[in-house]
Amino acid sequence: MTQEILFYVFSFLTLLSGILVVANPVSRNPVTSAMFLVLTILFMAGLFVLLHAFFLAAVQILVYAGAVIVLFLFVIMLLDLKEEETRRVRKIGAGIGILAVASVFGLMARTIGTIPPTASSGASRPTLEGLTAPLGNALFKQYLLPFEILSILLLVAMVGVILLSKKDLR
């Protein structure tokens, strides 16, 4: 019962702060969007905990709220962004956007509606626990090669960023 309430609270707050990231009626400042993105990610970590993915919840908070958002804020403060607030939103563009996105959501909801309901059937209770030990086991045994390739990807990203942020792009 508490899980149910927590699910609804967390998903409502996730969606609310998600909406405030993209369409904040009060402020159009990118810093506000970044702050609501932090909130979205924190509430999503709550949803991860409800799904018993404890390790991923911790990683989500550490990597997204800790690293990615700090990077965003650094860049926002590095670039002096005053212009965004003055430009107006086009009503017609927003209307068409809502229409298109609502139809995409309709498609997704219809697809989700075709899967058999899992909540009422108590036969297959989910038992999976996303603890660190089984994840680490899978990561270092079954998925060792992708894991190593990922480290190369991070290295490539680092080299690329250093190259891009040099003074003259040559």
């Binding site: 149910e4 699910f7 949803l47 309901p117 899992t118």
Partner: peptide, 11 residues
């Protein structure tokens, strides 16, 4: 626990 897969997928 009345929350199933489809709830999470809708969110």
């Amino acid at each position: 626990n009345g929350v199933g897969l489809e709830h999470y997928l809708i969110v």
